[in-house]
């Protein structure tokens, strides 16, 4: 990549014997929206803190906008707007004053600072609440105020740590659309970390799947999906009208088919795991044996599966959000069973 805006080389962070970030190499180009995906405790926030010089790497280097983030953090922070996870505001000040304070610290001239803060408050939809104390703000409002604060310094790079935490779905959509528009029109580079896959899927150009301090995958979402789809076996669910009279013979026959790895019978349906592209042959098999097929469902691979694939072997805290598809499927089948 030519002139990457963010470049991490061999970045490592040790906490005692724990490797929070392990030899990470990553470059992000101008105007790109990059999604850093990973479960809690994967080292996403640590990586971000190192990019801003808020913590020192144990080894390796971070370069942001051409400045070394460890030795010259102030130059980096002039160009980077950072919205932390769990941020707080000065509760005693009203929201506008909070914003004005940050604007002043960024060297915005005194004559323009109030107007600009007001403009941004309108833009994030807080114009009616700008004279309220920041302590009375709800989580979603704080998030918006945080975005205003990031934008007021006119950053070249925006780093958002879990930006969609605590906002309702509608708000998330607006938020991400806004970020995408900004990035497209102003060539602002955006790095956002999240464990909410589907949200990241909507906006990111590239994603990196980050588990236990290592980047397991780093590519465009579409390419990641096809890669997984071709590598993985495909799951096909066939449903029947009435309880199928499937015996051992049939399952055995299916198992003997080239490419089939597993067959699982559950109530009115059967789940077959095998190589991709075998669906027509399953249907032909059942039709030939005289079963009434009411539905065939071939599972499509989306980022969620990609995500799950990488998370399967990791016994970290499971995120219910990331697994929602799975839960839905399970309950769906339960419904049929009863």
């Amino acid at each position: 990549m030519e002139n990457p805006v963010i470049e991490l080389i061999g970045l490592t962070k040790l906490y005692g014997s724990l490797k929070a970030v392990d030899n990470l190499d990553l470059s992000i180009g101008r105007g790109e929206i990059y999604g850093l995906l990973g479960p809690n405790g994967a080292g996403k926030t640590t990586t971000i803190l190192m990019m801003l010089g808020l913590t020192e790497p144990s080894a390796g280097s971070v370069t942001v906008c051409g400045f070394n983030a460890t030795s010259n953090p102030v130059a980096v922070k002039r160009k980077v707007g950072y919205m932390p996870d769990n941020m707080g505001f000065y509760d005693g000040l009203n929201a506008l004053d909070n914003l004005v304070y940050i604007a002043r610290l960024n060297g915005i001239p005194e004559s323009k600072v109030r107007d600009r803060a007001r403009e941004l408050m309108e833009m994030v939809g807080l114009e009616n609440a700008m004279h309220k104390k920041a302590g009375t703000y709800s989580r979603g409002m704080k998030q918006r105020l945080g975005l205003a604060e990031v934008l007021i310094k006119q950053p070249e790079v925006i780093i958002l740590d879990e930006p969609t935490n605590g906002i309702d779905p509608g708000g998330v959509k607006e938020f991400l659309t806004l970020i995408r528009q900004l990035s497209r029109q102003q060539h602002i580079t955006v790095l956002l970390s999240s464990h909410h896959l589907n949200q990241v899927q909507q906006v990111c150009d590239r994603v990196g799947i980050f588990v236990e301090g290592r980047l397991l995958a780093n590519d465009h979402i579409s390419r990641l999906s096809t890669e997984v789809a071709s590598r993985e076996s495909q799951v096909v669910t066939v449903s029947f009208g009435g309880a199928p009279q499937l015996s051992e013979v049939h399952t055995q026959a299916l198992m003997n088919t080239e490419g089939v790895k597993a067959v699982e019978l559950s109530g009115n349906s059967i789940e077959i795991t095998g190589a991709p592209g075998l669906t027509p042959s399953y249907v032909r098999f059942f039709v030939a044996h005289g079963f009434d097929i009411t539905g065939v469902h071939q599972k499509e691979y989306n980022l969620e599966d990609v995500y799950q694939r990488y998370f399967e072997n990791i016994s970290t805290e499971k995120e219910t959000n990331g697994k929602s598809g799975n839960i839905f499927q399970r309950s769906f089948f339960k419904g049929i069973k009863n």
Binding site: G31, R116, E119, M123, R144, L151, E156, L178, Q181
Partner: peptide
């Protein structure tokens, strides 16, 4: 969150006038 167009009015005007990704040095001055 409203139309982002409001945001660009004025706020990024200096950057916009250059009409291309600004070089690091130029942004510094703005």
């Amino acid at each position: 969150m409203e139309n982002p167009a409001i945001y660009f009015k004025g706020l990024f005007s200096r950057v916009l006038r250059t009409s291309e990704p600004v070089a690091a040095g130029v942004h510094e001055k703005t």
